[in-house]
Amino acid sequence: MADRERRMAVPAGVFRARTRVMDAADVSRAIRRMAHEILERNHGLGSVMLIGLQTGGVHLAHSIGTDLEAIEGGRVPVGSLDVALHRDDIGLRPVLPQAVTDIPVDLDDRVVVLVDDVLFTGRTVRAALDALHTWGRPRAVQLAVMVDRGHRELPIRPDFVGKNLPTRKDEMVDVGPDGVDLGDVS
């Protein structure tokens, strides 16, 4: 989510892809693997729910959810969370009315898997952890990301990773269902 939203926040910025890092098949294989890892770690679906971070994590959460249900059978609740109001850099980014927060079930005693497209500084995840407790007290919170690009500014570590991708700080990563690109904003 981080990169997409940042792109919207920089009106003059246009993303130019330089290197294709994953194609559509890579992405769906990674999603399937992460779904298996989530099941393995939590010994089945149990009380797992997925929460996609607005905006880039929401689609990914739904994809993982679909795979979880296909592998294990049964239903897994999938929600969405906009952390804009919990950020530590309010005023630098717009708050998007269309980025809906929807937490469909009570979080108490749930295992919440936060899902985002790119893990970068960790500030979005920190804001998400902060936001979650206004909804309830999960038993555990885990983190799934498609791309971990490094450069953490907070002590946050993902539990499930699609791909570790070394980047420069000024590069951009674009994650979509049809693939992952590394490039620049100009």
Binding site: P97, A131, H133, T134
Partner: peptide, 22 residues
């Protein structure tokens, strides 16, 4: 735009702890 944004804040009011650090 203000009305659209108000929906977001109405959502905050639904939370168990209806408070954000904004």
């Amino acid at each position: 735009a203000i009305l659209d944004l108000s929906e977001k804040f109405a959502e905050v009011g639904q939370r168990k702890i209806p408070r954000v650090p904004a």
